[in-house]
Computed example of a mutant assay.
Amino acid sequence: MATALQTAERRDVGRSPEACAAARRWVREVTQAWQCPDDQAADVALVLTELAANAMQHALPPCRAVLELRDDRTVVVTVLDGGPAPTALPQRDADEHGRGLTLVGGLSTDSGRRSAAPPFRVGAYAAVPVPAALMADVRSR
């Protein structure tokens, strides 16, 4: 991920049940402004939702989402959190959980975790490819 950054957007993510839906709406607004095709915008929204849901389930607050449009035709989705929670929230139904990171891996060219600056401790990231046609310089917008 050593490619040049074109632009970035940040948003704090709450821990309420509505937080992921609000984050998806924000992703749609940002990716529309970046002229990202609907298919790739949906991929970015799904990746953000999965990373944010993991942070809500397994990490301490605060939680912040970052979208970065990079020169290598990727949108890097990062969710920063306060580090591992002493105990994770209980899972409701095992059939509905445990596939999020598999989805993230399937939609991204790179993903992982890295340390973050305070007040955050950890950042989970995924690089989602976007078509070359999108790569008009968005800095002038």
Rank of each mutant, 00 (worst) to 15 (best):
L69H: 06
Q6M: 13
R139I: 07
A116P: 00
V44R: 05
L5H: 05
M56S: 11
A23Y: 03
L48K: 07
A4L: 13
Q35T: 11
Q32P: 10
M56T: 09
A45M: 04
P37R: 03
A45K: 01
L46T: 15
S16V: 04
R25E: 11
G106M: 10
R73T: 12
L107T: 03
D71G: 13
V75N: 00
V79A: 00
D72A: 04
A19C: 04
D43E: 08
E96I: 06
A21C: 06
S111A: 15
V44H: 05
P90E: 08
G100S: 07
L134Y: 07
L69G: 03
A33N: 11
A136V: 13
A21F: 02
A41N: 06
V77L: 07
L134E: 06
V77Y: 04
Q91N: 13
L51Y: 05
L80S: 10
W34N: 02
G82K: 01
V47L: 03
V77H: 02
L51E: 03
L67K: 01
R92P: 09
A23E: 07
A41K: 05
R73A: 15
A88K: 09
F120G: 00
S111M: 14
L80G: 00
A33Q: 14
D43R: 08
P17K: 08
V47S: 04
R15W: 07
M135R: 08
A59Y: 12
A52C: 12
Q91E: 15
D110Y: 10
T102H: 10
T31Y: 03
N54V: 05
R92H: 14
A65Q: 06
Q57K: 11
A116E: 08
Q32L: 12
E50P: 04
L103W: 02
V130K: 05
V47M: 01
L48N: 06
D137M: 05
T102E: 14
E50V: 04
R15A: 08
R139P: 00
P61D: 08
M135N: 04
G123K: 04
C63I: 15
A42R: 14
T87R: 15
P62F: 00
A124L: 12
V128Y: 05
L67M: 03
V79K: 00
L48H: 07
T7E: 14
C63D: 07
Q6P: 06
T49E: 15
C36D: 10
R24A: 12
V30L: 02
E29G: 04
L80H: 05
Q6L: 14
A45P: 00
M56F: 11
V47K: 02
Q35Y: 09
A52S: 09
L103R: 12
A22W: 09
V79I: 10
T87Q: 14
A65N: 01
